[in-house]
Amino acid sequence: MDFTSAYSRDNLSFLLEGFGLTLWLALLAIIFSFVLGCVLGIIRYAKVPVLSPIVGLFVELVRNLPLLLLIFFARFGLPELGVSLPPFWAAITALTLFEAAMIAEIVRSGLNSVDKGWVEAARSSGLSYGQTLQQIILPIGLRRMVPPIVSQFISLLKDTSLTVVITLGEMMHHANIVMGQNSRIVFPILLLVAFMYFIVNYVLSLFARRLEARQT
């Protein structure tokens, strides 16, 4: 094992460049999937006729498929259906849809966990359904959802590594290129890559735990 040549300046900057793209992918997908997930979760919770069952079908379909399949499909299948996206946006699309379905479930069960007594009390005191949702259910439910949603963001950051299969040039792809230089640097590079993911995710998970602790 050769740590010195593994951690040369060229290699480090090349890996950092890849990690930059990993973080950028994750950040965009986090924003999009959070917004979409909340909307889908609320629609499914509110039991709107027609719309809620459709959303439910979509959420369950996506949630029960491997993300890898969605990535392949967004990259190679969509163009056949006339929707052609650059690789970066194909990756964003697949990540967003998958994570949004997961977040929609978190949101829905968070809302469901709000005591029905509160809802009934609000309704009988004259609030409309919309007002009850906005003033009672959402504020209480949201607070309970935050820790699982942050864990989902951690999953998302890890999941970006799967885009290696469509050669985007994120962390894992760059790691593959660097590891190709020499067999003796494979292990040191794997360790370094693990360390980089770990640091970011661990900080995020500490943050999630603090939020959780504040609630109880």
Partner: peptide, 11 residues
């Protein structure tokens, strides 16, 4: 637990 939960499965 912390190590394996915070790195990607692919890794």
């Amino acid at each position: 637990v912390e190590f394996f939960r915070n790195i990607p499965l692919l890794l």
